[in-house]
Amino acid sequence: MLKLIKFEFMRKKMVFLIAGALTVLGQLFAMFQYYKLDETVRNYAGEEIFTIFMSFTIFGFGLLYFIDLILLIKDDLFKQEGYMLFMTPHNGYKILGSKLIFALLEGFIIAVVYLALAYLNVNMMGMGPIDFRMPEFDVAWIELIVKGLFLGVIMLIEFALTVYLSFALFKSLFTNARFKGLITFGIFIVINMVKGQIVELIGKVFGRSFESIHLNASGAMLEAANSAMTLGIGATLVSAIILFFATGYLLENRINL
């Protein structure tokens, strides 16, 4: 398992290097632009500039991470030079699991880099340490934020797994068919429809709809939001686990590479 994760890092070392270089360049460019500004403007709009810069950065990082998540398995299944990994005596679940662990580590690294960047810029712009405290700061809020982050992560992984399952289904059922992209996308839509149906069915059984809870989450009641988060996490986790085993099964037993 460690060897498999090591391999994923080896494979990505160039990507990491380029991403790192781009980040440094971007930061230097932003600094250059910032110090070109008049001092009064800087003092006046510093916070806004900071917010804009950091939002751009998080969007960029998020997008790259997302693309990377999908590429993580695509090349192994679809590229001619890809299946070197699937020739090794590791079972499909293990290979998939290693990829997910790698994805989590990668996400963690990106988060750390992002926070470091934020900290650096805040200090440079002379704003002092960021004051993350909210007006109504209490335990329920922290809980909500932590849960929100966690939900975000597993939703991303759940989404990635849905894509992986589409890939695996394509390679198991259609193998050498043409219109790879189109068919895979079709499979992806079908899986999401099935997922929707299942959620609806469960909702009916329990007499409430998940969708309305999701809507409520952004609403007023903190407690309701909190319990909605918990439900969301539970549902996403269950879905992710099912998707993991379905994909692992196909990789191990059904796939034609």
Partner: peptide
């Protein structure tokens, strides 16, 4: 299964070795 792959050495006709690897990295793999 993945178990038999441990004692079956298969060489596909395609270029199955990742292009980004150096020769020594392929050996290490």
């Amino acid at each position: 299964s993945h178990k038999t792959r441990a004692f079956v050495a298969f060489m596909p006709t395609e270029n199955f070795i990742y292009g980004w690897m150096k020769v020594k990295e392929a050996l290490q793999f």
